[in-house]
Design a protein around this nucleic acid. Structure first.
Lengths: 330, 330
DNA sequence: TTGAAAGCGTTACCAA
DNA sequence: TTGGTAACGCTTTCAA
């Protein structure tokens, strides 16, 4: 049987209530007894039973995080950011990996929710309505990070629309007029829609009518990049390509290599995300880097703030980091 | 205020005890009332308060996982394996990321332990003694995965000693006589010690006395690979190199590329881990693949087994996957 | 098959 | 500054 505050109280000759006050630093008590109690707690190897505390307090400082198992590696960076802030502000994180299977998702979410959470953060997930219903039926704050949901859920992400303008402008300035967008043609997710629209509008602002064929590829996968090069064949009908995720861009790079296309001489590549993966290739990928750590920190700050607006959309910084995959042409 | 079993009981005109029995499927009850209760629970949007249940039951089915924030990406694969098995067997996973800072580690661990855990799994961590003390002072099972600890803690990992034999034998069979081992020279971790010894003994079994200079590099990092090539310079004093992690091997490959060394013609590479990272390079890395999913599943199975032996060491499968980075020479 | 009641460990209120 | 006590929601024993 584990040690309880009652045990400590007995040994110290005071009441459990006092021990509780001391150990939680709430209410009044004399520093004298406090000293003794803290020592005793240490000696006896006391561990707070958080379940009992939660039950008693009815409010919790636990934030649940839903992470897709097939997550790209930037999820780790976001979690690190959340972890840092949560540690500072005294929140606890409860990380749950969810599969794409909606049944399993619901079970995981229910198990999460049975922990009296303060909030649930959805990390780069396009959550299904059934799951969302479950979440909504519970009394928790919701927040979507690195993804915007079409619902009224507050979100923190990069400004994906503006990001495409940045990239297109950059490529345009380097002489490119024909550029493809790979990996953002999934019809559903808001992120993909925003990127497509940003791409189209940015081209238009330079007087270029976009070619629908140049928007191709759904999966955020290495193979998507490989396949894209194969699909368009030689000679490529464009001089530059935008990879909608680092892993896609690495696929594009390798696909080009396999096809004897020289990067950046014959093909320029700009990638979206800018994780450390971009450093692993030769040449190093030119990237629009998202500030994932910032997303994580803002997520916690936002949830900690009781007066957060219910439908807010917060954008985090984007930085274009030149690598070696963009050439000036024309 | 959230719905409780009492609310359900009231509405159904029965006692809370009955509702509890029905919802947990324990004890006896009539299918008739059960039907009604389950419907009601659904309608009313009931969520079990797991804190209350834990408090009442005194035993928990929650397994805590300590994951280093600077984890290599195979941690995800292990977690997936654990998740799958945990889901099957009805356990809950509580994932906590820990920094290298020992103070923060202790706080994280304490917060974990305050949740009445069944067990704590340490994922590829060389835990510090201070943290281990905290863990030992609590009444939880411990298990180390993908790493063996020098203490009496049960562990699940690849047979790192045998793995080196596999690799050395493979390279020897391809004509290599001079081979380096990069990224396993950290004096402390058991894993590094085992790999070094396996490497040395395997060479000896082929009548080769190992060259101490050829064991180099501490960090499991991309830069370690890059630096290794620089350190040994041209011409390389060996014909093959073993990278102690995929990310190191990618560094080796890029370092070779930068130095104008052709892989595999001038240098053969075998990597340890065999994660999907190995598919991103050209040529694809020849790897000894560890079975991370199996580690994860075994971890849960092991913890679920009440009669587990306290000092057991379980080994998981290793598979040599030929890629394009090993040439036959001589 | 069902119910009443005690108990899990902690906190919060009120009184001393 | 301290202590007594009720309460949190659920499970479990024992009786009915």
């Amino acid at each position: 049987m584990a040690i309880t505050i009652k045990d400590i109280a007995n040994k110290a000759g005071i009441s459990a209530a006092s021990v509780s006050r001391i150990l939680t630093n709430r209410g009044r008590f004399s520093e004298e007894t406090a000293q003794r109690v803290r020592e005793l707690a240490n000696e006896m190897g006391y561990f707070k039973n958080q379940s009992a505390a939660d039950l008693s307090q009815k409010t919790s400082r636990v934030i649940g995080i839903l992470v897709p198992t097939n997550h790209t590696n930037f999820a780790d960076e976001i979690i690190k950011g959340m972890q840092k802030k949560a540690y500072e502000l005294g929140y606890e994180l409860l990380i749950a990996f969810v599969e794409t299977d909606s049944q399993q998702q619901i079970k995981t979410v229910r198990s999460l929710l049975s922990r009296q959470l303060l909030a649930v953060v959805m990390l780069a997930i396009d959550i299904e309505d059934a799951v969302l219903d479950v979440l909504n039926s519970a009394d928790v704050k919701l927040l979507s990070v690195s993804n915007q949901l079409n619902n009224d859920i507050p979100s923190i992400s990069s400004d994906n629309y503006a990001m495409m303008h940045t990239i297109v402008d950059y490529l345009y300035a380097h002489g490119h007029r024909q550029m493809a967008l790979i990996g953002a043609s999934d019809p559903d997710p808001i992120v993909a829609i925003l990127r497509r629209q940003g791409y189209i509008d940015a081209l238009a602002s330079h007087g270029i009518t976009y070619n629908p064929d140049f928007i191709w590829g759904v999966e955020m996968a290495f193979q998507t990049g490989i396949d894209a090069i194969k699909k368009f064949g030689l000679p490529l009908p464009f001089t530059a390509v935008i990879g909608s995720a680092d892993i896609i861009s690495i696929g594009l790079l390798n696909g080009a290599l396999d096809a004897g296309i020289s990067v950046p001489n014959d093909l320029s590549i700009v990638t979206v995300d800018g994780t450390e993966l971009t450093q692993l290739t030769r040449p190093i990928l030119t990237a629009t880097q998202q500030n994932f750590a910032q997303m994580g920190e803002l997520a916690i700050t936002n949830l900690a703030n009781p007066s957060r607006s219910p439908h807010s959309v917060i954008f985090t910084d984007i930085t274009l980091i030149p690598g070696g995959t963009v050439a000036t042409i024309g």
